[in-house]
Computed example of a mutant assay.
Amino acid sequence: MKVGMVASHYPHAVYREEFISRVHRVAEEFRRTPGCLSADCWVPVDGDAVISIVQWESEEAFAASFAAVEAAGLDLAYDERESRPREMVRLMAS
């Protein structure tokens, strides 16, 4: 069963471009993982959020993607570069 995730990130303005690059690097690693169907970075036309949308073919592929990102040493941690906590929504196909 397909699963997905939508994550809204809120970087401080001074870190916005760095954060967008960070999300793109993570998305690239996700896409290299077998079973990842798509991984993209979006920014609203009006607003300051950075939104990542990822889709996998299964829960196992989801777990493998996160393990690959961690193994690659990419930064997923929430920290002071963000102005407020992330909003994450896990999805499953119906």
Rank of each mutant, 00 (worst) to 15 (best):
M1Q: 08
M1L: 08
V3K: 06
G4H: 03
M5I: 12
M5Y: 00
M5T: 08
V6N: 02
A7G: 10
A7H: 03
S8R: 15
S8W: 12
S8D: 06
S8C: 09
Y10G: 04
P11Y: 09
A13V: 12
A13W: 01
V14Y: 09
Y15D: 15
Y15C: 12
F19A: 15
I20W: 11
I20D: 09
I20K: 13
S21T: 14
V23I: 13
H24Y: 10
H24S: 07
R25T: 05
R25M: 06
R25V: 00
V26D: 00
V26P: 00
A27G: 03
E28Y: 05
E28V: 10
F30W: 11
R31W: 04
R32M: 08
R32N: 13
T33A: 06
T33W: 06
T33K: 04
P34E: 02
P34N: 05
P34A: 07
P34I: 11
G35D: 05
C36W: 00
L37P: 01
S38W: 03
A39M: 08
D40F: 02
D40P: 00
C41W: 01
C41G: 03
C41T: 14
W42L: 15
W42S: 07
V43C: 14
P44L: 09
P44W: 10
P44S: 10
V45N: 11
D46H: 14
D46R: 12
D46K: 13
D46M: 12
D46V: 14
D48C: 02
D48Y: 03
V50Q: 07
I51H: 09
I53L: 13
V54C: 12
Q55C: 14
Q55F: 03
Q55L: 15
W56H: 02
E57H: 06
S58Q: 10
S58G: 10
E59C: 01
E59L: 14
E60C: 01
E60G: 08
E60L: 06
F62C: 03
A63L: 10
A64R: 13
A64G: 09
A64M: 10
A64D: 12
S65R: 04
S65L: 01
S65H: 08
F66A: 06
F66Y: 15
A67P: 05
A67V: 06
A68K: 05
A68T: 11
V69H: 03
V69G: 02
V69S: 04
V69M: 13
V69N: 04
E70G: 08
E70A: 14
E70V: 11
A72N: 09
G73D: 08
L74K: 07
D75Q: 12
L76R: 15
A77T: 12
Y78S: 07
Y78G: 09
Y78P: 03
D79E: 01
E80F: 08
R81E: 07
R81Q: 11
E82I: 01
E82N: 13
E82Q: 15
S83A: 15
S83P: 00
P85S: 07
P85I: 10
P85N: 10
E87N: 09
E87L: 13
M88G: 03
M92I: 09
M92Q: 14
A93V: 07
A93L: 13
S94N: 08
